[in-house]
């Protein structure tokens, strides 16, 4: 099997496993480790995780399907997650969406050909007072408008 955690990551996993009385409870943390290590959760990864955690493949599959943050295909280097729920909608989330769709030519679920950006519509990020909000990878970008967002995208493009 090509997909496998390094010794170091395995150690990290075993430390996490010690937090729970039942190894099956490590499925979510194991998937987080896998996503961190491999960038996304492939079928092969799911098979590996099923074996590591000791649950059937179907359990891993349904969990990956259920939780929206597990990426089943390789996201862009910068994964744009736009909140579209009420508070963000009220103060201009649609304009940000239009910007992404038109200026980056990126529809929800897609990745730019250069692999730099991917786009996912998400539900409430819990940052309603600083709406509109886009989470890029782990970080929140708050109080956005098209100009500010344009600036952020330019900086990310420059960083490459």
């Amino acid at each position: 099997m090509a997909v496998k955690f390094s010794e170091e990551v395995l150690k990290e996993y075993e430390e996490i496993a010690s937090h729970y009385p039942d190894r099956k409870a490590t499925l979510l943390p194991a998937l987080w480790l896998a996503q961190r290590e491999f960038g996304y959760i492939s079928e092969e990864t799911m098979e590996y995780i099923a074996e590591l955690v000791g649950v059937p493949y179907t359990r891993v599959y349904e969990v990956v399907e259920f939780y929206t943050m597990y990426q089943k295909k390789k996201p862009g280097k910068y994964h744009l997650q736009l909140c579209q729920t009420l508070s963000c909608y009220l103060v201009g989330a649609e304009e940000i969406r239009n910007y992404i769709e038109e200026k980056l030519n990126l529809k929800p679920g897609e990745v730019t050909p250069d692999g730099l950006f991917s786009f996912q519509l998400v539900e409430c990020l819990g940052s309603c007072h600083t709406a509109p909000v886009v989470q890029i990878n782990d970080d929140y970008y708050e109080n956005l408008n098209v100009e500010k967002f344009d600036q952020i995208i330019k900086e990310l493009k420059n960083k490459g």
Partner: peptide, 11 residues
Amino acid sequence: EVWIHRGAGAY
């Protein structure tokens, strides 16, 4: 003992 368990995007 106190441990953190991270969710993964499910209201």
